[in-house]
């Protein structure tokens, strides 16, 4: 069942510009220059119930704008958006009752209130049944290990603690759709793992549809089966991470440490990326020469101490992809 439908979505912002320096400021008094920035150009995609979609792209690509439109905060210039059958910015109040949103860089909890009072306030704002609320709250508190933080004001929480509280706050009203804008930003490794695990469970066990943006490719690898790459306001790719890797940077890396001095290796489909006195890093195209064959060739002719194969880091794949599409930040 299609849960989120986006068709030819476009949105532009108008930015006031000023020439530098004192004269520029003076000129700005009489002549204001406006520049239109196209944040989204004909973005289309759809999302099934229970799916986790990773939204990646360079800074300023339009990820947050998309989330803000899908959550009903912003109105697009044109295009069609439907989330669980509702147009977010038209039916805002009904729509936002069904979604949960976490913006990693902002807090939705009340800075001066203890966590538990913030939750209680959300109970009233979402008009939740007190019994249903209490059950859900206790469940989230134990899953996210919040019991010792409940009486602390939000401003005293560490970032990792706050993010766990934010997730609970976004889920108290049991939304069927969750939008996460950089939910792991600035978190330490254990907190990241906990957040990923929690989100994955949510989608697998409760069928919650999740759309998340991130710059951390490990988030994507850990959670999302599907990614959309967005750049300059356009969808550049839509598919699995493996498919993206195959089209952009299929090569593998072979690291060889020789018993003696490293030889000069010349093989078809292979090039040398780096060389030290006794070790070599090779890049090879698995479609031309397979890893077993390459290793066999090398070990047959040279005495080696160690050998291992790697894929290029996912960050490298993505950076290459942004480069190919000229999608780096302007």
């Amino acid at each position: 069942m299609v849960q989120i439908l986006v068709e030819e979505l476009s949105k532009s912002y108008r930015i006031a510009e000023r020439e530098p320096g004192f004269l520029g400021a003076l000129r700005g008094i009489t002549h204001r220059r406006w520049r239109t920035v196209q944040a989204l150009k004909d973005v289309s995609f759809s999302l099934e119930r229970g799916e986790i979609l990773g939204f990646i792209g360079p800074n300023g690509a339009g990820k947050s704008t998309t989330i803000k439109i899908l959550s009903g905060i912003l109105r697009p210039d044109s295009g069609r958006v439907e989330v669980a059958g509702l147009v977010p910015y038209v039916d805002r109040i009904r729509h936002v009752g069904r979604i949960g949103v976490v913006f990693g860089q902002r807090t939705q909890l009340w800075w001066d209130l203890p966590v538990i009072e913030g939750f209680d306030l959300l109970r009233d704002i979402y008009r939740l049944d007190p019994h249903v609320y209490r059950r859900k709250r206790d469940q989230l508190v134990s899953m996210l290990r919040l019991d010792r933080l409940l009486d602390q004001p939000v401003r005293q929480l560490s970032l990792g603690q706050r993010m766990r509280a934010e997730l609970a706050a976004a889920l108290l009203h049991e939304p069927s759709i969750l939008f996460l804008d950089e939910p792991t930003i600035g978190l330490d490794a254990p907190s990241k793992l906990a957040v990923r695990e929690f989100i994955k469970n949510l989608s697998q066990q409760q069928g919650v549809t999740v759309l998340l943006t991130t710059h951390d490719m490990h988030d994507i690898e850990a959670m999302a089966e599907r990614v959309i790459v967005i750049g300059n306001g356009q969808v550049l790719a839509d598919g699995s991470l493996a498919a993206l890797r195959a089209t952009v940077l299929a090569e593998r890396r072979l690291f060889v440490e020789f018993a003696g001095d490293a030889p000069n290796l010349v093989l078809p489909g292979v090039h040398v990326r780096g060389q030290n006195r006794r070790s070599v890093e090779l890049a090879f195209d698995p479609r031309i020469i397979g890893a077993p064959e390459l290793i066999a060739t090398i070990t047959a002719n040279h005495a080696i101490e160690d050998i291992h194969v790697e894929q290029p880091a996912i960050e490298e794949v993505i950076a290459r992809f942004y480069d190919l599409h000229d999608a780096g930040e302007v």
């Binding site: 936002v96 902002r106 979402y126």
Partner: peptide, 12 residues
């Protein structure tokens, strides 16, 4: 600060 977005996310 843009926190107004959160007020718009409430069903009220």
């Amino acid at each position: 600060t843009g926190a107004v977005g959160h007020d718009r996310l409430r069903p009220v």
